[in-house]
Design a protein around this nucleic acid. Structure first.
Lengths: 226, 226
DNA sequence: ATTATCTATAGATCTATAGATAATGC
DNA sequence: ATTATCTATAGATCTATAGATAATGC
């Protein structure tokens, strides 16, 4: 019996081992936090899912909260950065004449593509992000990581709608982000309501409609008179 | 010094006392759950907020979960019922020719008015409802209490948009409910983003824009070609 | 007599830390 | 030598129950 293909222990370097374990912990935490929230998950749960001892959580992270923050930080920069670039690119393409729909395509589609193409890990993060957005724990994280890209979008929308009040533009954005966060949350309710016709994980179907829908909404707020 | 106005112990009947205590517990739980979620609140916290002993929680409720459900049930029927009536009334008024915007005004404005006119208690419930909508704990509650009114809205929208596919109508509703749940959640983020220009508790400002915005969104999904 | 509230406590977690063990690193 | 992982455990909760006490009810 040839032994040549036997399980060669890959002899990982410490740096590799550390990186791998860290990623496994973050994956497990991301999955669990996305479903049960900060308070619905114990460090035990995370350790168990990874298959290591609870005390290892404290070796890699100060406490539960810093693990939670690390899960957020791991991907928040990527989604924020990609949308920032997309908005920059669009603003340049559009010269001085951006449209609401163009700006929303750059903002929304770029983000949705990340989840559509990113596999399970990114879909878990989507759900996690919605949790963060909906709970007081997350307020500071949202502000810190996403203010710049949102304010850039707002800036382009102002350019596209020069006769609109700032309030109308912010409230329009408020409706957009509400729907986007609800999308990321993937609650499964639309699946049951529609009897399976729509599924909350079908971000492609949402991407096909969302920017157009929201742009039309913005146009409906057109100032009357003068 | 006249004693006539001294603190006469109101000598409440047991039924009154029971009802009052129950309401105090539900109020405290509503407030706390709305902020921290099911897992972020202990029965101790609730009891402490009411000023009674923890064990009293178990006298009135089987366990934490049944307290959570009771908080939801207390007001869910009211909001659902009011919107049901408003939709019925609108469908009748409109004869066979309802509009998307008309249906959305009935659905959204009726609900928002409840919070606008209902004081702190209803604003807490709004936040609580958003929590329920966003977490797996709440899925079954949402289905049980709100399926009928949502399906009634969907029915009227189908009548208003006879050439639309069911998918488009459900996805349109999906965007509406996302924005509505985000409204109820009152995260405070729009306050900070807009530097105080908009505040997330200003449901009147939202009501003034939402039905129109969403109706325009629906119209943008118009099927192309034959 | 019945019911609202409290006291006392068991048993199960949960977080966090100190210190041991077993690997990789020169 | 250094670092990744585990063992053991302290201390703090948290839920839930049994049983006592203090009110209202006839």
């Amino acid at each position: 019996m040839p032994e040549s293909k036997a399980v060669k222990p890959p002899r990982r370097s410490k740096a590799e081992q550390r990186a791998e374990t860290l990623e496994q912990i973050l994956d497990a935490a991301e999955y669990l936090f996305s479903r049960h929230g900060l308070h619905g998950v114990t460090l035990r749960d995370v350790a168990q899912r990874v298959g290591v001892h609870t005390s290892l959580m404290h070796y890699y992270f100060d406490d539960k909260r810093s693990l939670f923050d690390a899960v957020f930080a791991r991907r928040a920069g990527i989604t924020s950065g990609r949308r920032m670039e997309a908005l920059d690119r669009y603003a340049q393409e559009a010269g001085g004449k951006p449209t609401v729909e163009g700006a929303l395509h750059a903002f929304l589609d770029t983000d949705l593509d990340l989840y559509i193409d990113g596999g399970d890990a990114w879909m878990n993060y989507a759900k996690f992000g919605a949790q963060v957005s909906n709970t007081p724990e997350g307020a500071e994280l949202m502000d810190r990581y996403f203010d710049p890209v949102v304010l850039k979008l707002i800036g382009i929308l102002k350019q596209a709608l020069p006769d609109y009040s700032e309030e109308d533009i912010f409230w329009g954005y408020f409706f957009v982000t509400g729907s986007l966060m609800h999308t990321l949350g993937q609650t499964g309710r639309i699946d049951r309501l529609s009897d399976g016709l729509c599924t909350s994980g079908d971000f492609a179907a949402i991407k096909a409609r969302m920017a157009r829908f929201m742009a039309a909404g913005f146009m409906s707020l057109k100032p009357t008179g003068s």
